[in-house]
């Protein structure tokens, strides 16, 4: 199978970036916004790899490949951190609206059994 046209994937990457940015600003649900950041990131990665394919003699440029691998790992770290933070914020807002909190705030920061180790 012949190589893909890099420009097609380049444009798709830019489209993902724009869609992600729009949704990040417009959407209000925290999960949607976190997914939007991921889509923006995927757009950048598509652009990187499409550019790598342009230098495809005899093989695609490995340097952007390594960069994107780094980027994917950074993105999943960002997602994990953002989800933990979003979860705390949402728990806070849920508790503010109900008189009986689901878990007392002190439980969040209680001592841990692993402390002994």
């Amino acid at each position: 199978m012949p190589d893909a046209d890099p420009r097609l994937y380049l444009l798709a990457g830019l489209a993902l970036f724009a869609i992600g940015f729009y949704s990040l600003v417009v959407q209000t649900h925290l999960l949607r916004r976190i997914m939007a950041l991921n889509v923006m990131g995927s757009g950048v990665f598509l652009a990187f790899l499409a550019l790598a394919l342009k230098a495809a003699a005899p093989m695609p440029d490995p340097v952007p490949h390594a960069m994107v691998l780094t980027g994917i790992v950074v993105a999943v770290c960002a997602t994990g951190l953002a989800l933990a933070l979003a979860d705390r914020v949402q728990a806070l807002e849920a508790n503010e609206e109900t008189p009986a909190p689901e878990e007392p705030p002190s439980a969040e920061t209680g001592s841990e059994p692993e402390d002994a180790g």
């Binding site: 950041l37 990131g41 950048v44 652009a47 990187f48 960002a78």
Partner: peptide, 22 residues
């Protein structure tokens, strides 16, 4: 959380710029 959203999207703008430079 707001800081994280700004920081992450700003990083992605920066990274797309790096892609074009490359």
């Amino acid at each position: 959380l707001r800081y994280l959203f700004v920081s992450l999207s700003a990083s992605l703008f920066y990274l797309l710029g790096v892609a074009l430079v490359y």
